[in-house]
Amino acid sequence: MKKIGFYQGCCFQGPDAHMFDTLKKVFSDLGVELKLLEKTTCCGGNTIDEANKYLVYSINARNIAIAEKEGLDLLVSCNTCYMVLAKTKHALDNDPRLRDEINKLLAEEGLEYKGTAKIWHLLPYLLEEVGIEKIKKKVKRPLSGWKIATYYGCHIKYPKEVAVVDSEDPKGLEELISALGGEPIKDYEGKDVCCGYHAYYTNKEVSLKKVVKAPQGAKKAGAEVLVTPCPLCFKAQDIYQDMAQADEQKVPSIYLPEILAYALGYDPKEAGLTYHIIPLSKISVNIPPAG
């Protein structure tokens, strides 16, 4: 069994603690042990950068150093956390003075940023380390008849120095959806429009205008659900879309590990699909109620 350090970020708190259980089980089924690095903290959410960029570098150097101390790579399950951690790695690997300064601070805790840990985002990890063939073999409940719009989110596409997919033509999600037996819809209006998550607490109006664009385009293209590898895009498309659209216009969104879990045969509750604000029971393929 492979083993990787898991960075939890802020994703699995509040009403979302169950998402980590799903993720852990799915990865275990796919032969990967997620070692939760409990001492890691919030990455700053690309927001503490506004108060103090240096602090962001320090806390994320610490997050990476915690994985390095255990001799593990770091798996990140959120686009924004991934980008912030990867930007820190990029800055520290290219600026020895900054790295030395920060290492002096980390020494207090017995930590050192060496730059040896690779930072993986969920999507490329599934594609490159787990592999499509392995996933295909594990499918117990093929998503036959599911028309699924793929939504990548911004922070694995831009900026270029940290992107894990082709910024102008991202690929991978479609292959995954096909492996699960679903029908991926790649090209639709609004596929590249930001979900608006990060603007909700800075300018709510803009956020609510943005969040409906990808779902509306996906619907026009015949999709019944959206799938995203980012829990924040998912949260925006679940909670904020619910606020911004009339019921008949809403397109439910699914976080990638949840759809994997469902296709791997988990019951909808175990897969986390029953906790959504925009219920999935509306789609043409009905999910039986939990219980």
Binding site: N46, P159, T202
Partner: peptide, 14 residues
């Protein structure tokens, strides 16, 4: 200029 409308998508950097 409504600077708080920025969604931090990073496209401008790209």
């Amino acid at each position: 200029g409504d600077i708080w409308s920025c969604v931090q998508c990073q496209k401008c950097i790209y």
